[in-house]
């Protein structure tokens, strides 16, 4: 295995939200295979700064795969080629010497580009505001063990709750649909007994906001599931559909 790589990068550069963007090609040499993908971009940015070019803007924060800030469409794949992995955890040993890597921002009408590779994912927050919670004011909670929750139910909720809100599902979906994100939150809360009282208003509110934000529809392609770094399952989408139909057909609202 070669220890260093020479690479060609094609990076989407866009100075601002309303400016037009284009791909710019950069050459990088002697990239250690132990680097993470973002460290490789750090190296490029250092070189750009030295040359007097503005650095490439990209979102990142925890760099350990949990905050959901990093994004990037790498060679047409959300978070790059590995499954269950965020861009910050992707390492350069995954690439070959001489590779050309195309780096694009998440593309969706609901995620407008802010600059270069940075997009605005505020739509997700606005969806959560419309019901992605359990109304339990501070101080009003009963003892934590007062309602037993069977371990399998808890596990199902936890599987869904693992969503990191990165938006890879939207990015990977050919329709830029946010169904996996919304379904993960709805599943997490609606499978738990604590979440049952608000299950109808939750799903109705969140789906209405999702539609309002301009995300596409789910065509059951399952690309979202494959791209999801938290490995959220599309069975949650079925649950979301069920919850939504139940709420529409059975609730009094």
């Amino acid at each position: 295995m070669s220890e260093t790589l020479d690479l060609t990068l094609k990076v989407w550069r866009q100075p601002g939200p309303d400016a037009s963007g284009r791909y710019v090609e950069y050459k990088l040499t002697e990239i250690s295979t132990h680097m993470s993908f973002l460290e490789m971009l750090d190296v490029l940015n250092e070189q750009l700064n030295e040359k007097g070019e503005e650095m490439i803007a990209f979102d990142h924060d925890c760099r350990e795969g949990i905050c959901g800030a990093c994004s990037l469409m790498i060679n047409g794949q959300a978070h790059g080629p590995d499954s269950g992995t965020t861009t910050c955890q992707l390492h350069m040993r995954r690439f070959k010497n001489g590779d050309t890597i195309v780096i694009e921002p998440w593309r969706a009408r609901a995620f407008p580009v802010v600059r270069d590779l940075v997009v605005d994912r505020g739509a997700f927050d606005r969806i959560v505001q419309e019901g992605g919670f359990i109304s339990a004011n501070t101080g009003s909670a009963p003892d934590a063990n007062s309602v037993p929750i069977p371990a399998p139910v808890q596990e199902t909720a936890m599987d869904a709750a693992a969503c990191i809100g990165c938006g890879a599902c939207v990015a990977a979906c050919k329709n830029a649909s946010a169904m996996l994100f919304v379904s993960a939150k709805v599943s997490h809360l609606s499978t738990l007994p604590q979440g049952k009282p608000e299950r109808d208003s939750r799903v109705q509110g969140m789906v209405a906001q999702m539609d309002l934000e301009g995300f596409g529809n789910c065509t059951n392609t399952e690309e979202c599931q494959a791209a999801c770094p938290a490995e959220i399952s599309v069975s949650n989408i079925a649950r979301l559909n069920r919850e939504f139909l139940r709420a529409q057909l059975c609730s009094k609202e």
Binding site: A136, A144, A151, Q154
Partner: peptide
């Protein structure tokens, strides 16, 4: 202790035993 109660009420999926208790 209040924190655990509060978080559970919010739907934080803390690990549970097979009996359903924390």
């Amino acid at each position: 202790n209040n924190i655990i109660d509060q978080c559970t009420a919010q739907g934080v999926p803390f690990a549970r035993d097979y009996g359903g208790l924390l």
